[in-house]
Amino acid sequence: MTLALRTEGLACRFPIGKRLIGPPRAVLHAVHPTDLAVETGETLGIVGESGCGKSTLARMLVGLQPPTEGIVEIEGERLGRADPATFGRRIQYVFQDPVSSLNPRKTIRQILEVPLIRLHGMGRAARARRIAEIFDAVNLRPEFLDRYPHEFSGGQAQRIGIARALAANARILILDEPVSALDVSVQAQVLNLLADLKAEFGLTYLFISHDLAVVEAVSDRIAVLYFGAVVEQGPADRVFSAPRHPYTQLLAESAPKVGRALGGGTSGELPDPLSPPPGCAFASRCPRASDRCRREMPLLRVIDGEQLAACHHPL
């Protein structure tokens, strides 16, 4: 199988408290050097809590956020710091908030036409044909094309967001919390649509979410992000049922579930991102933490077959 997407040592740091001259007051490590590989036709789920760097990582993959270091390879080609338009033909982004990702002052047709004109230079007739095709693929009625975004419900607006990503004719889609703003009954409609589109167009997905159950339901493989670094990675059916990293275990146990008593015994929060601890970022919350964990940052390594974890004392 060929790789659709690969990153090597991809990292992002933000200077905090910039001064006109001289170095910034502090540096925030949003994403630590990360290696990821996604095969063509695969769905890689990325799970993490707010502030773990999952959106920054995703924005670097589509060129919206220039990486501080590391490389991004899309369909075997190194794009690095290229213009978002160069990325746009190969990889597209579906945003979390469906309504604010659509310009309120443009009709749906105007929004969908942009990638066709700018990325593919299509003529008027070809555009109309292609838009009709895509709109049909996302199960929307053609009369919606001449309406404005505020006239749509969240689920419909998210379909339009997906239609825009498809219009660019990219083979890889980054789905950044595509259903977390939607109600459950509509969430399932959109997830099923995404599954159908993937089969129909042979797409590759990077599915970002904080909802473990949703990620598990749609992914082939899952990467768990904590404090800007991948702490565990493995096949979707193993990561939550047999976690190797204590953080993954905590996540899986915290997810509210029918027929299970309230968990949530461990307290504690994320460490201060401006002065990260020298060792493992999870050590302060971890029941298995040893002195070594507080001293030495664990690296992502193979624990068992396809399952990787960044932990000195894996489960």
């Binding site: 969430q187 409609q189 598990e216 339901a217 029918v258």
Partner: peptide
């Protein structure tokens, strides 16, 4: 509605949906 809610441990699957709004 309950059928729509994905539960952890269900594996990769197609989810139930309620048509319409």
């Amino acid at each position: 509605l309950i059928a729509c809610v994905p539960e952890l441990g269900g594996g990769r699957r197609r989810l139930e949906a309620i048509p319409g709004l």
